[in-house]
Design a protein around this nucleic acid. Structure first.
Length: 423
RNA sequence: GGAGAGAUGCCUGAGUGGCCGAAAGGACCAGUUUGCUAAACUGGCGUACGGGAAACUGUACCGCGGGUUCGAAUCCCGCUCUCUCCGCCA
């Protein structure tokens, strides 16, 4: 959620930058500023009336104490009118505040100046590419065939338990997943991220805090009876750990990580996008989250990209880094890098990580602040990234490393899997 | 699921109708003093939205939402959460 003060001080710039993501914010912003003006004057009127009531009440008390009942009662006579007015103004104020908030909730984050204009992922800037695509034979199999051949992932069996998009990992497949989770968590903690095991059911406040609500309501599984949602990413519980918090300067930066299953309804997805492990309703992910002094957040973003790139190098996967264009960037993000690995048999790039700086967009909703050098409370910047999402990594690892003897395991993972060829 | 107790500032904890944005202690910050460490003393120490160049000042907030009252942290109602006991259970 953008701040009213930002809208006031740099309205034109924000409108221009929102256009980069093809969002016309002019009318909404004007409306917010107009409503905020009315909010302010209403607040002033209300304060004045409450002041009168407060002072009168004190006088009435004095009069009673002094035994001057008549004067007291006379003063009391004025109160009902004042109370009526205050009630009216109070209601008006509530309505105005509600309207302002609901408009602000509709406005996406303002993209950083480096974010390129564009419509779709085709317009993203590919800023780096690493590793070379393995030359597989013509008979190279996509991972779903390999999964069946080695009996490590059963897609049909999962639909018996739940439905499509909930695969069952078996034997060395399950072991491979667990190896990846441990590998990623070990790497993250070595890099200074504190390991957390958060709840994966989240309440409404948490959903609003990080921006999944109201924007992505339909993407989350909802447990109606308790009004809870299944977390679509550990970003939600991890970042919300710090909701309604004022951090001391020495507590920054906050760097935390968690492995959690993630749940997404993925309504409307179809075709090759959902084949095999490409898009699931339940998947595993290790997430990294940082809370930063605003002056350091972009440097932190670069470091996070470097960190994730390091993981992909250790996994010996060819990958590229994209800076998302305005049309492809998420609602809450100011700047996002996607990491994509090449899945050699499918011959396509798969997004395995999305690393974003939200600037104050989430912090504003979360009321997450820190005491700055002047001793004032200031909104922090929040960032997060996948490090990494498991299924597509597994898909690429299976496809890219297939050979006649089975599927080779990257050296870095062998200590975790306990085998160097899956067969 | 049943019964009971509770929710006050960074923490502990007082406050049962006006003098309470809230005692006291601790922590923290600044200063004074003692040769250092420690101690002692003095002052400061919540958030949000307004007004004001500033000093300062208005309003709201004692879990959340309503109500009673001239006046609510304090009384009433609803909700949420925490704790204890019983039941069930990984």
């Amino acid at each position: 959620m953008l701040e009213v003060s930002q809208l006031k001080s740099s309205k034109e710039e924000i409108i221009a930058r929102l256009k980069v993501r093809n969002f016309d914010g002019e009318k909404l912003i004007d409306k917010v500023l107009e409503l905020d003006g009315r909010r302010k004057s209403t607040q002033g009127e209300l304060d004045e009336i409450l002041y009168q009531i407060n002072t009168s009440s004190k006088e009435i008390g004095e009069f009673f104490k002094a035994g001057k009942t008549e004067e007291a009662n006379k003063l009391k006579g004025n109160i009902p009118t004042l109370k009526d007015n205050s009630k009216e103004l109070g209601d008006k104020l509530n309505i105005l505040e509600g309207e302002i908030r609901s408009i602000l909730l509709e406005i996406p984050n303002c993209p950083h100046e480096l974010v390129p204009a564009g419509e779709t992922s085709k317009d993203n800037d590919i800023i780096d590419e690493h590793g070379s695509v393995p030359g597989l034979g013509k008979d190279a199999k996509p991972h779903w065939d390999l999964a069946a051949q080695y009996d490590i992932i059963d897609f049909e069996l999962g639909s018996k338990i739940t439905g499509s998009g909930f695969p069952v990992y078996k034997g060395k497949g399950a072991r491979y997943q667990r190896a990846l989770i441990n590998f990623f968590l070990d790497k993250a903690t070595e890099s200074g991220y504190q390991e957390i095991q958060p709840p994966v059911l989240i309440n409404e406040d948490s959903g609003y805090g990080t921006g999944q609500l109201p924007d992505k309501e339909g993407q989350m599984y909802h447990v109606g009876i308790d009004n809870l949602y299944l977390s679509p990413t550990a970003e939600v519980p991890l970042t919300n750990l710090y909701r309604d918090t004022i951090l001391n300067p020495e507590e920054l930066p906050v760097k935390i990580t968690a492995y959690t299953p993630c749940f997404r309804r993925e309504a409307g997805s179809y075709g090759k996008d959902v084949k095999g492990l490409n898009r699931l309703h339940q998947f595993d992910k290790v997430e990294i989250v940082e809370i930063r002094d605003p002056g350091q957040s972009y440097q932190a973003l670069e470091e996070m990209v470097e960190y994730v790139a390091g993981l992909l190098k250790e996994l010996e996967l060819p990958f590229r880094i994209a800076r998302l264009c305005g049309g492809d960037i998420g609602f809450t993000s100011a700047m996002t890098y996607d990491m994509e690995v090449y899945s050699a048999a499918q011959q396509r790039w798969l997004e395995v990580s999305s690393i974003s700086n939200f600037e104050t967009f989430q912090a504003n909703r979360l009321k997450l602040r820190f005491k700055n050098k002047e001793g004032k409370n200031q909104l922090v910047h929040t960032l997060n990234g996948s490090a990494l999402a498991l299924p597509r990594i597994l898909a690429a690892l299976l496809e890219n490393n297939q050979c006649p003897e089975g599927i080779k395991i990257p050296k870095a993972l062998v200590p975790y899997t306990g085998f160097d060829v899956l067969n």
